[in-house]
Design a protein around this nucleic acid. Structure first.
Length: 590
RNA sequence: GGCCCCAUAGCUCAAUGGACAGAGCAUCGGUCUUCUAAACCGAGUAUGUAGGUUCGAUUCCUACUGGGGCUACCA
């Protein structure tokens, strides 16, 4: 249940006679900033006082008198200039937590009405090795898909591969001029990846981002290979078809490892046959016009127009993106299309969405933007030899570090003369993988996506603070209680024992558990997975306080023991589910 | 040049227009015959500058300073 929504609903009722439109005032019910002020607080009396011309505290008094919430709240207190402090009844909390324990969805209701979201994320260029730049889009997009789906929305995920662009010109040039046939036969992906880097290396020294240099013969040759491909050249098309499976296998290997799945993988090449019609339609509607031999969508004063057909007749990404919007709209009838893409494309999406709307698209279009991945010192991430780190190497490194940290911790926590608990090699590999990848994902997702993100392996592996490992450890430590006490946690979930909340730490834990849905709703509304990690971190800290102060297996009475076991189990389930919604695994033992 | 984004503690980051701006790291000091010490407890420092709107501003507006980005034939 979403406690906040319930409170806002009750305030809405209480405010109905006081003001014409109570909605904005009801929305001023928020979770309390400080535990001293209770669990929630209503801030509407101050602004209402202004509107009604009465002292805020008087208004607050009137609201409190009209409120009907005795069933879930203690009597509200008016404080300061007119804050209304709300404190949940402990017996109500206990009943809600018990109900939560019985529910597979942990008390999280399905949204009404459900909406259909198309989410566009990851979208790598298939001919290049995936690098660290693709990481954020992939894991943020995956987390949002999981989150929206869990809340009851219909989600269509679509990986808009760059499978038709200039990078294939590079591959074609490399294959024709530089390939090692034996190496290609043995391992085509590796050879193609090598060729890509080899050709790039022969470009005149330029930054990746700096665009083309017509004076560079190698670049020019690559561009011509691309043009031939797009023009339907039989040989280049044959090679493209031959390269594709290998390229796809390469990126799919990473998706499998990251546990990321897509409903559809419709790359740029898929839309190629539609592009001419898109341009025609835009011209007919008067949205596009001819300029300097090219077709453009003009912008306002001083702003650069969007090019949709180049002077040489080739189409651009804007054309493909418009075709994509048209296709998605027709095929899936979404309420919203989300693009999980780098902040640098903000302007492009602004223009694109504007054009799409004028073209008749009614779905909500949103650029879910995120900041750059930088190294610790704030500069672009580079390998020792100056290249962009490949994603696979990055993940290997993370898993390797997880193994090292784990081994070090195990040696340290094993008393002299004692043997560390033996674990099977296979179990250990699983732990390293889950912990290593979890650290990478959590470090990224826990940051506000709008900010630039400093990729710091030492820190994400530090196992202290708000990290994936901490959360996984909190889960594993919790599960160990059940092993130790020989208690089957499943037995606590059907017809659960009454919940007893006598100690403040028990009550605090219950209140925090009940906020799970609130955090998910908020994260989904803002498309910010970091709200989920913040919640989990708060939950873990609250649980720590409980765990320190409330003996579970050695509780004073059998009833208290059952109640605390239930709180433990519920905490573990919320952590596990929360991590799962972020695409992060948890292990029973670590 | 034009347009956009960012600026919070020594460092990395939070904060849905609300009460005394929160965490983590680092630093210092405490907790292991007691359910996993990868843990817990305690201790100090911050909203770039100048204005404005508001009962109330880290949050909204304006200017400035500093950093980053985009700026039609790459995506």
């Amino acid at each position: 249940m979403n406690v906040l929504h319930e409170l806002q609903r009750r305030f809405h009722d209480a405010l109905a006679d006081l003001v014409a439109d109570p909605a904005p005032y009801a929305a001023m019910v928020k979770s309390a900033q400080d535990a001293r002020f209770g669990d929630y607080q209503a801030n509407c009396a101050m602004s209402l006082g202004k509107v009604l011309g009465k002292p805020p505290r008087t208004v607050a008094q009137t609201i409190v008198e009209r409120l009907r919430l005795d069933d879930l709240l203690e009597s509200p207190e008016i404080a300061g200039p007119g804050f209304i402090n709300l404190r949940l009844r402990t017996d109500w909390l206990a009943r809600q937590v018990r109900a939560m324990a019985e529910d597979d969805r942990l008390g999280v209701s399905r949204v009404q009405p459900a909406q259909t979201f198309v989410i566009d994320y990851s979208s790598p260029n298939v001919a290049k090795p995936m690098h660290v730049g693709h990481l954020r889009s992939t894991i943020i997009g995956d987390a949002l898909a999981r989150l929206l789906r869990f809340l009851g929305h219909t989600v269509v995920t679509d990986n808009h591969l760059g499978d038709w662009g200039a990078q294939f010109g590079i591959l074609l040039y490399g294959y024709k001029n530089l390939r090692d046939e034996a190496a290609f036969q043995a391992d085509p992906v590796r050879e193609l990846a090598g060729l890509y880097l080899e050709v790039r290396g022969r470009f005149k020294k330029r930054d990746e981002e700096e665009g083309e240099d017509p004076a560079d013969p190698v670049q020019e040759a690559c561009r011509q290979e691309t043009a031939k491909l797009h023009a339907g050249d039989a040989e280049n098309l044959r090679l493209w078809k031959m390269f594709m499976p290998a390229c796809l296998e390469e990126i799919n290997r990473i998706y499998r490892r990251l546990d990321v799945k897509f409903d559809h993988t419709l790359g740029e090449s898929f839309y190629n046959p539609m592009l001419a019609e898109v341009v025609t339609s835009l011209l007919e509607r008067g949205i596009a016009q001819e300029s300097d031999g090219a077709i453009i969508i003009p912008r306002g004063e001083g702003a650069a127009p969007s090019l949709i057909r180049k002077r040489d007749g080739a189409f651009t990404y804007t054309t493909t993106d418009l075709a994509t919007i048209q296709y998605r709209t027709k095929e899936w009838k979404p309420d919203a299309i989300l693009y999980v893409v780098d902040f640098r494309q903000k302007e492009h999406f602004g223009n694109l969405f504007d054009a799409a709307r004028r073209w008749g698209c009614t779905a909500h279009l949103e650029h879910v933007s995120f900041g750059a991945v930088l190294s610790k010192d704030g500069k672009p991430l580079k390998t020792r030899d100056g290249g962009v780190p490949e994603l696979n190497n990055l993940l290997d490194d993370a898993v390797e570090r997880a193994a090292q940290v784990y081994e070090a911790a195990r040696r340290e926590t094993t008393a002299p003369g004692e043997n560390a608990p033996e674990m099977r090699q296979e179990t250990l590999r699983t732990i390293y993988e889950v912990v290593g990848l979890g650290a990478v994902k959590y470090a990224d997702l826990s940051q506000n996506r709008a900010s630039d993100y400093k990729y710091d392996p030492d820190k994400m592996m530090a196992m202290d603070g708000n990290t994936g490992t901490y959360m996984q450890y909190a889960y594993a430590r919790n599960r160990s209680i059940f092993r130790k006490g020989n208690v089957d946690p499943v037995s606590l979930r059907t017809n659960p024992a009454p919940v007893i909340l006598e100690k403040p730490e028990e009550r605090a834990l219950a209140a925090q558990l009940l906020r799970f849905e609130e955090s998910l709703t908020f994260a989904a509304a803002e498309y910010k997975p970091s709200f989920v990690t913040t919640y989990l971190w708060d939950l873990a800290k609250t649980y720590s306080g409980f765990f320190q102060n409330c003996p579970v297996l050695k509780a004073e009475t059998p009833e208290l023991r059952q109640s605390r076991l239930l709180l433990c189990d519920l905490t573990a389930r919320v952590i596990q589910r929360g991590l799962d919604l972020l695409g992060i695994g948890a292990v029973e033992r670590m």
